[in-house]
Simulated assay, not measured.
Amino acid sequence: MALDTVANKKVSIRLACSAFSISETCYRYQSQNSDENTQIAELLVDLTVEQTDWGFGQCFHYLRNTKGYLWNHKRVYRIYCELALNLRIRPRRRLKRNVPEPLKEPTKSDQVWSMDFMHDQLVDGRKYRLFNVIDDFKREGLAIEAGFSLLSQRVIRVLDQLLEWRKKPIALRCDNGPEFISHEFVHWAKKKGIRIDYIQPGNPQQNAYIERYNRTARYGWVSKHLFDSLEEVQDYATQWLWFYNHERPHTANGGKPPLMAA
């Protein structure tokens, strides 16, 4: 109001400040953070457009830990709310369920690898599968193998390729799918000296790490894109796996990507 009065009514600054009970210092103050606030807003908008499944926590950890910006979280959250980005997703009503027993946390890499399959389809309707493997310690993604038919032989081949550059895990955690209970796979694990930890049927929470990883992949890229061929799926999966390990913040790692976590 004081600014409008001085500009339009040709009143002196002193008289305007006296009339509106403000100091001349307050009147002459100009924000020094407007440019930075604009930059924060642009980064937040770009992030939420690209990563539609990210909330404020993921966005802030990405800016802080991956990109190295040291802005205060309260300031970033204020701009996040001013942009109404906190209203993008309507919260769903959740059912009350019994709390599952917590999984035992690995204390170092290559203690337990978790494995599971995902399903989707190409533009022409052909269904394909994704075989996912992660290291439970830092939730590091180890492999994503795409195929129309992923039998136990393909599973063994993927694991053999991983063992060429990774230490042998103590155990493999998986469900009771036919690929994992086949005699060929069981014989391979026994020959390698690797224990197979099967979860109880109907209890996917016992394989919670890979289930959460599957959900991240599902909302991060699988459900976002339509692919014409299996080769396109594999190429995109390889690129996304690098992004997941090197740049995507993970709450289990204190907001840092798996390969940046100590």
Rank of each mutant, 00 (worst) to 15 (best):
Y27R: 10
V49F: 06
G220N: 10
L70P: 00
D35Q: 15
N65K: 11
A252S: 15
P102E: 06
E42L: 08
M115H: 02
A2Y: 00
R88F: 01
H225S: 04
R215L: 15
C174Y: 03
R90G: 09
Q30T: 12
R218I: 12
R215N: 12
I22Y: 05
Q121Y: 10
S23V: 07
E164R: 11
C17W: 06
E231W: 03
R28L: 13
H187K: 14
R157L: 07
D197E: 15
F20V: 14
R92F: 01
K127S: 13
S34C: 06
N203V: 12
E42M: 09
I13N: 08
R94F: 04
F56R: 08
Q30F: 01
L15P: 01
P258L: 02
N253G: 05
K168L: 15
K224C: 12
I199A: 05
L162W: 11
A2I: 10
G57S: 11
R195Y: 11
N8Q: 14
L63D: 01
L15D: 15
N65E: 13
H61Q: 07
C174S: 15
E184G: 08
E140T: 07
V233M: 10
D116I: 05
E101R: 07
E50A: 13
E42T: 13
N98I: 06
H119D: 12
A84I: 05
R75W: 10
